[in-house]
Design a protein around this nucleic acid. Sequence first.
DNA 1: TTCATTTGACCACC
DNA 2: GGTGGTCAAATGAA
Length: 360
Amino acid sequence: MGAGPGGATAEQFIVAAQKATNQLKALLANAEPLLGSECASAGAQRSGSAVDALLSEITNSLSQALASLQLGPLDSQAPPAQPGQSSSCGGGRRSTPRRSGQRVRMDGACRMIVLRNEFQDSYTWRKYGQKEILGARFPRSYFKCSRNSSCPARKQVQQTDADPSKLELTYLEAHTCDDDPPPLSSHLVPDTMISSSTQGSTARHVPAPVPSSAQQHHIGQPSSLPMITGPMMMAGSNVPRTTGDLVPSPPAPVAAAVPALSSNTTAKYDHVPDDHTTFTPLADQEEQAEVLLFIPSPACSQSELLPTEVANGKVELHGPPVWMDHDVACDGGEQNTVSDFAVPELAVRLSPMVLFKMRN
DNA sequence: TTCATTTGACCACC
DNA sequence: GGTGGTCAAATGAA
């Protein structure tokens, strides 16, 4: 993918633009009190909302452009597999180039692109397969939750074509092993990502681990940065390898590039404050925003993933991605509760304290 | 010996 | 018919 001299370069430009936009938002937010206190005329307010709208549009456009780059247009010609790549994976027949991910999953899923080669979640995973994906330079690895053999949770890990240092993670099905939660937090990104209630099966699944307060919306990851910044590859990690526990990958340079692919299960334990409803976002939110980009799978639309207010951009949010339960109307009029992450990059800013603050 | 990973083969879906 | 997803035997590591 990527235009001409490197799609990754274009990607970097977009990311930089996103960052600049966020900084501009912050500057404007700081300037608002000055403007608003004495000059809070209706005209100024209109001007402010227009600026907000423009900024939102810029942000959304950049996010979608980035997503397009990273996922690739459906009809794009993906680069051919590298000769050196393993081709021994089963069923590796191929003829017509086809972008990986083009096939639409019917069970729903959410895709998360790890913009940095750092990511962990709170579950242990066991690799059960690897396969060459047509049109993708790198094979896709398949993982199952290893905590409980009956747990249907699965994870797919694949290096992105544009930037091999980035991993594309797709989570499928919800964990049912939550009766026996990990020693520490289990409600961290991204335990499960249940999407589209149009796929009846997924909507029935147990939502992601819910804080004891059982609130309508879950703060996904109070300590998100510590969790995110934990090296996914576990290279150099001192997490011990024990049965069913974490499996640190070897500290080989290659493994460092793509830990979960070359090695094994990923897991770690993340500290989470007891009170999930209140936490102080880490100072470097710009940094944080760069780390993860949550992208709904092709099988589910933005409006399916998010509450209507969010999808319509009427909600102002700040902070890291958060868990949300929200009701979604199915075709038959039936209501299903769907748990998922908000998609801050695509939608809105998330508030760690007040998850949904309605904008008038 | 146990358990995780690898990988060829099979199956379902489009 | 082609592809992605999963299974399961073989293999390797602890």
